[in-house]
Amino acid sequence: MAISSLSEAIAAPPRKQVIRRLKERFIESLLFLCAFSCVAVTIAIMVILGTESIGLFKTVSVWEFFTGTEWAPLFEPAKYGILPLVCGTLTTSAIALFVAIPIGTTIALFLSEFASQKVRVWVKPILEILAGVPTVVYGYFALLFVTPLLQLLFPDLPGFNMLAAGLVMGIMIVPQISSMSEDAMRSVPDELREGSYAAGATKLQTAWNVVFPAAFSGVSSSYILGISRAVGETMIVSIAAGLQAKISFNPMDSAATMTAYIVQVSLGDLPHASIGYQTIFAVGFLLVSMTLIFNTIGHWLKRHYREQY
């Protein structure tokens, strides 16, 4: 094809050249539309979440929404304080990160500094499979395996609790943190490692004192993106953490998260533009803003703190 186009180009009458140029333009515009669709989706998210939730703030003041300590929009008298949902989200996310950050970082350091190529080849697919398990299956696992197991330890643990949901969510996030951190650690140049080994350091001393600080921006960005993932996770918490909105930081409690509330409402059949319908968009708006902030910090860390080696 390349050859035929060459002979065409040499002998091409002007009309053919014009057609060819038009064809190139057309393809480029088509591809541009594809790329622009991303921007369109972002705009659509903002517009839809904004317009569909704006009605709520005609009934409820923004102040009440953000500072109220009771959330019961579907009851009489209705209460619209989002803090209980935020509280549930923060508690489950904190438990998840308490699991995911130490385990994920340890695995990353182990794979990048200690493990042989053979071990890596076996461990990485296992982590990928762990990352690929559907969240609804994780939810099932949290409710029907982890909670009964924890009840052996804590007999008073309710059937729906934030602890089991958070722990399983943590395991779900481990592969994300470990693979991003490992990438950051492996991009630390060997010269730095050799400098440390030549000074008589052990593997652990090299990993902890040289590689970890050098890769820190990449590692911390993986933590932030992990937080964002935990905040947005839906199925595990809706299945295993319970659906009551209440302010509680006790992991042994059951409590609804922001995402669980959206699911709970969606399962019912709410008419378009009712108050209940508007609330899920308002909650969604807050959710997307929170994850957007975390993602922006995460990517900023990754890009602007490019390591100084």
Binding site: P189, E191, E194, G195, A198, N209, A214
Partner: peptide, 10 residues
């Protein structure tokens, strides 16, 4: 040991 290229730690 001193290496070919300076490799100070960060």
């Amino acid at each position: 040991m001193v290496f070919q290229r300076p490799n100070p730690f960060p």
